[in-house]
Nucleic acid binder design. Sequence first.
DNA 1: CTGAAAGCGCTTACAG
DNA 2: CTGAAAGCGCTTACAG
Lengths: 336, 336
Amino acid sequence: MAITIKDLAKAAGVSVTTISRVVNGNYSGVSEETKNRILVLVNNMGYKPNAIARGLVTRRTKTIGLIIPDVSNEFFSSIARGAEDEANGREYNVFLCNTDEDVFKEKQYLAALNEKCVDGILYAGTVKGKSNEILNLKEKQFPLVIIDRQIEDIEISGVFIDNIEGAYKATNYLIKLGHSNIACITGPLSDRNACDRLEGYKKALKDNSIAYDSLKVMEGNFKVDGGMNAMKELLRIEKISAVFASNDLMAYGAYKIIKSRKMHIPTEISIIGFDDNALSDIIEPELTTIRQPAYEMGKLSARMLIDILEKKSSHKVITRLIPELVIRNSVSEKKL
Amino acid sequence: MAITIKDLAKAAGVSVTTISRVVNGNYSGVSEETKNRILVLVNNMGYKPNAIARGLVTRRTKTIGLIIPDVSNEFFSSIARGAEDEANGREYNVFLCNTDEDVFKEKQYLAALNEKCVDGILYAGTVKGKSNEILNLKEKQFPLVIIDRQIEDIEISGVFIDNIEGAYKATNYLIKLGHSNIACITGPLSDRNACDRLEGYKKALKDNSIAYDSLKVMEGNFKVDGGMNAMKELLRIEKISAVFASNDLMAYGAYKIIKSRKMHIPTEISIIGFDDNALSDIIEPELTTIRQPAYEMGKLSARMLIDILEKKSSHKVITRLIPELVIRNSVSEKKL
DNA sequence: CTGAAAGCGCTTACAG
DNA sequence: CTGAAAGCGCTTACAG
């Protein structure tokens, strides 16, 4: 049996009230003498307050839930790490929840987190539509911060990437190096982020007076095989000199196909990605890409949430991070 | 305010005891009629038991802690995923804890998990030495399962990889293809797992009557740059035809150096890794390696822990998984 | 089949 | 400066 506040009160010859006060650093109404006496006793007896009991009365558990599709996906594991680091530094713990973008699983997690009385939730949810559960939580003013996947028409604090801007940077970089026949491998267009990246690509084209050609756009799936399939199709369009892949995995797929055709990257064809996976500076040639600051997103979102919990912030805030261009060796100047 | 068992009792016109019984599926002493009446009420009013209050009295929180060095490391994120999947299926939640192998951080997490009354802990701890906290927990019979990093001289249930066997398989594969001048890039030899892999390499050599030559063994750091440095050194030994890198990251480092020297993999030099990272079948040539079943390790360890918690298992059990050879394109027969 | 009561380990008005 | 008491939302003997 762990030792409780009662044991301590008995040992110190004071009431549990007094113990509670000093354990919580609430020394205002406690004499220096008793305070010190209790403090050494706490230390000697190894007293640790029971957070469950405390949570029951304070209604704060110092626990938050993190809902993501899959921790074993590099992007989300970085988010998880960032969120956990921030939470830990503020003495919160985080429940890890993997939904696989499955609405039913997500619903179950939300219910479990509710029963376990988490103080707030960090939510990178299913892509399609808005869940009623989330709308309900917002309705109830439950502390919530959205990560990466914006929910249309609903005002909740969140931290997002400016995907349009990132894609714009990628495409514009290609254009500035003389490319004009630039293909785009998109993510699945049911995904808002994928659409935004396509939009950024189009915008860069337009701003540089390059005609948009839908034949040069192939829809992928954000995975290696999708990149391979798209690249195969694209290679039929002989004029292409560069491709913007909407994520690094698809860029790797494109690499595979290009290498198998004995074409050289970047001299014969330039590739730029999006994400900056750990692998991207290992693969040859090292991939020029747009870095998504996943760790920072996780950290920031946790900071926003805990600030709300601790009343350091109350108004809704949307943070939009600007991804940056990372220049490596997969893009070269277009030879005239 | 969420609705409580009292509200429900009032609404149903029964005692909280009866509500408690049906909510917990303990129908034995409840009439069919009241049971059904309560069940529809639970549903209509959306009653959800407060797990915190329940935990306080039952002393079971249906929560476990997962202590790992870093979720953003692919190996551990797969473990985390496996553990979480198993836990979720059994209606447990998991607290994520990243220690960065920092003993102090670990200590703090252990204290926090204790205060939050987790039912058990999954522990992939700091490599060096044994922590007093863990010894204490074992002493107290606190439910504990060790993952991946065996603690010497202490009997606790755990799931491990047979690193010796894995390294043996890798080296033996090289030998069977005619290689006899095989280098080894090890992990840091302060790490038990790194030592085991070196031992497996030596054992394979011995079993095939190949003399062990310490000049062909370079100590790395389990990272890309360590693989690069080691490979640079090894290339001075002209006789080498193959190298066993103790993990995939160092194999990638070796690739970098070999490619920069314009040597061909595998015809001029064969490489085999250990881990089977996501990148290993993307990089060119695709890396032949030893697969560590990280997801399964996580899943199994959670299963062991929860079995202990639910009294389905009581004796200590050590599970040792045998890693398997994954043949791809980075190893070729030695030309005579 | 059902309920009154005690209790889990805390915190928090309130009183002195 | 200190403490008695109520209460957080449950479960669990115990009694009937």
